[in-house]
Design a binder for these strands. Structure first.
Length: 485
RNA sequence: GGCGGCAUAGCCAAGUGGUAAGGCAGAGGUCUGCAAAACCUCCAUCCUCCGGUUCAAAUCCGGAUGCCGCCUCCA
């Protein structure tokens, strides 16, 4: 497949270095708070990448870490009156709740920083020995950025550019403002581990270098993360790992775009923040997942509840079609008959198009376009009273059903039983609109009476009454069905 | 200030040289007691603007304007 590689800033043909094996490392969360939509996007994007690589037959080793010791966690622990370990454990558990809801698969290895202190100390010792790092009197260890020739190659910066933005915090004993911490001496009350430089804890950038190398051979095939991690985090990882090992660190760097609110970055300081919980209180997880996949992973994605409602309609349309296909296939009487070749050709086109879309830098938005193509095709077959009873129609509908099922495994959407999803969706929408189901049922009962008496005026009056409650009634062969307007 | 990205219909959005996917909304039609759903048809002579390259550009190059991100923790 073709993947956009930040290292080189171009789409490149991706093939694994070691036969059929693919190594993928993605920077996971710092466990100090509930996950927001940005985490959801990153997780879902790389989840689809893993699923797709596996779909293609690769043997993928997927490692995603947890940062479980860090300034923010320590700060949060102080606020909550907990230990930093307790805070990390709490939010790792919350992470799993959200990710399971979103259908994000577990990684093969999910290493925690605190369980790899020894590896990080060893890595740091090696860097000091080779002159790439130095310890200060107070027990900090810094990486000597100017000792690594390739620094800046990922983010496209040079040392001079960086100098203008660099600064030294008070109390830091850096030899050069560009240097970054590998090891931080413990301040009173902070969690610490013993080291050759005294008690302290690892710097953030160091973890990923140590943990990726432990579980996968270098170079990694793919290293992923959010766009903001490219600099300095990923740049620093490259410097540490390549300076320490002399090997290339990662061949492909994949970065997902940001979630924005009104075209601005979502952030706590701007107060435009939504957690995954906020969303799932009002919408089904699949709606959010579909929304996240409806744009290319590298584009900025503007979040709003209005946009989510639009996605909800899209999801509903597809499930509605799948339900109709399912119901049609449950029939038993099939006849011989002609079937238009053009429908089969169109279906082949969508099948091919879907595969090509993902092949081209994981273009899920384009892939969804082909999914809708197939949905329209199903509708066309089902709408034609003569056509839909033919054996060829049956076979084609089954082929559509199979195609969507296969695609759903890659995208992680449309995999539920349609009737179950649609029932959940109705409940979800009714709750959001504040609809009282008992009240609706009573009105529907009255309307049924009126309809039995052919009193359409009364029936329509009740329908208006229901509409005022944001309830829409449909008369189907099976009776009245209601949904949220 | 340095580095980078984006600009496609009412809205969202795909599309990196061959003549504008898809979704939502909207209009007409089939169906229906009337509706709804579903289906069919229509809905950008044109891709922010100005130049250039080319037989051919939304797609490449130069410039302008606007928006955004990174350079500090951040998916």
């Amino acid at each position: 497949m073709r993947l956009y590689n930040t290292l080189g800033r171009a789409k490149q043909e991706f093939t694994p270095l070691r036969g059929n094996d693919v190594s993928l490392y993605v920077c996971g969360i710092t466990a100090y708070d509930l996950c927001h939509i940005g985490h959801a996007r990153s997780s879902v994007v790389f989840d689809v990448l893993v699923r797709y690589l596996r779909f293609k037959g690769y043997n993928v080793t997927f490692v995603r870490n947890f940062t479980d010791v860090d300034d923010k966690i320590i700060k949060r622990a102080a606020e909550l009156g907990l230990t930093s370990q307790e805070v990390a454990e709490k939010y790792i558990a919350e992470f799993y709740v959200d990710m399971d809801a979103l259908g994000v698969l577990r990684a093969d290895v999910e290493p925690k920083c605190t369980e790899h202190i020894a590896e990080m100390i060893t890595l740091t010792q090696g860097l000091i020995k080779d002159g790439h790092a130095y310890a200060t009197l107070s027990g900090d260890v810094y990486f000597k950025v100017r000792s690594f020739e390739g620094y800046g190659k990922l983010s496209g910066r040079n040392i001079e550019d960086l100098m203008s933005g660099a600064r030294v915090e008070p109390g830091e004993e850096k030899l050069d403002p560009l240097d970054f911490a590998l090891w931080k001496a413990a301040k009173p009350g902070e969690p610490y581990w013993p080291s050759p430089w005294g008690n302290g804890r690892p710097g953030w950038h160091l973890e990923c270098s140590a943990m990726s190398e432990k579980y996968m051979p270098l170079p990694l095939d793919i290293h992923g993360g959010g766009q903001d991690l490219a600099f300095p985090h990923h740049e620093n990882e490259i410097a540490q790992s390549e300076a320490a090992t002399g090997k290339e660190f990662a061949r492909f760097w994949v970065h997902n775009g940001f979630v924005q609110i009104n075209s601005e970055k979502m952030s706590k300081s701007l107060g435009n923040f939504f957690t995954i919980r906020d969303i799932l209180a009002k919408f089904l997880p699949e709606t959010l997942r579909y929304f996240l996949l409806s744009m290319h992973y590298r584009s900025p994605l503007d979040f709003s509840f209005d946009a989510l409602e639009e996605s909800e309609k899209g999801v509903r349309r597809i499930y509605t079609a799948l339900l109709q296909v399912e119901e049609a296939l449950a029939g038993t009487k099939w006849s011989k008959g002609a079937f238009p070749q053009e429908i089969l050709d169109e279906l082949s086109g969508y099948e091919k198009g879907f595969a090509e879309a993902l092949e081209d830098d994981l273009n899920t938005a384009a892939a969804l376009g082909h999914l809708f193509g197939v949905v329209r095709l199903a509708g066309r077959i089902l709408e034609d009273k003569a056509l839909r009873k033919t054996e060829a129609a049956r076979d084609t509908l089954a082929r559509i059903q199979a195609a969507v099922a296969a695609w759903s495994k890659v995208l992680g959407v449309y995999g539920l039983a349609p009737a179950v999803f649609l029932a959940d969706l109705k409940t979800c929408r009714a709750a959001r609109a504040g609809i009282d189901a008992a009240q609706v049922d009573a009105l529907l009962e009255k309307r049924l009476e009126a309809r039995k008496a052919k009193d359409f005026a009364a029936s329509d009056a009740i329908r208006d009454e229901l509409a005022a409650l944001r309830v829409e009634v449909k008369d189907t062969p099976l009776g009245q069905v209601w949904d949220v307007l």
